[in-house]
């Protein structure tokens, strides 16, 4: 419940802050923290989607992700935890971004669940995302909505690049 209240409050603030302003950029970088490979997925079920990205930290100090906001639906940072062959999504209150390292949100691992969407996300839409970090503050950016198939192919590509 606290999460939902926090989200509504931050969304309201975000909307007020955005009035008359240019939309946030497609990429975000601040104080050593950079966001790349940011995608939301189309809604397979009408009220549900997911968001993924890579958060890189070029700084010598670690940072901590405390929350995620979305212009669409309620955003919840989850991890997938598997015990005795059964996988569950668990809420992640804090996620450390290591110094001179990165954290990749990806299917089957850390991901942002977008729930209670007012309307399904479609291929070609964009959503505005805000990532709140302890040191770097809130990074706001736009993420394209892609199909799950495209997402999987893009991740396969980034896997090859990281190898």
């Amino acid at each position: 419940m606290r999460c939902r209240v926090g989200f509504v409050a931050s969304l309201a603030l975000g909307l007020i802050g955005c009035t008359g302003d240019a939309p946030p950029p497609a990429i975000a970088e601040h104080d050593g923290i950079a966001v790349s490979d940011a995608y939301a997925t189309v809604s397979a079920a009408p009220e549900t989607s997911a968001f993924y990205c890579t958060i890189s930290n070029a700084d010598a100090r670690p940072d901590t992700l405390l929350g995620v906001e979305s212009s669409a639906g309620m955003a919840m940072l989850h991890s997938v935890v598997t015990v005795d062959g059964r996988s569950s999504m668990q809420s992640v209150p804090r996620l450390e971004i290591p110094s001179r390292g990165d954290v990749r949100l990806r299917p089957g691992g850390y991901h942002v669940m977008l729930a209670d969407l007012p309307a399904p996300l479609r291929d070609g839409d964009t959503v505005e995302i805000g990532l709140s970090l302890v040191r770097a503050g809130t990074l706001r950016f736009r993420a394209p909505v892609v199909t799950y198939t495209d997402l999987a192919q893009r991740l396969e590509q980034t896997d090859r690049e990281h190898r």
Binding site: T41, A44, A45, E47, T48, S49, A50, H78, V80, S87, M89, P107, G108, H111, M113, L114, A115, T147, Y148, T149, L151, A152, Q153
Partner: peptide
């Protein structure tokens, strides 16, 4: 299940593709 945002749709999308 259809409220699943991550594992289920990714499996199905990969198989379909």
């Amino acid at each position: 299940y259809t409220h699943c945002p991550d594992i289920c749709p990714v499996h199905m999308a990969n198989l379909a593709a």
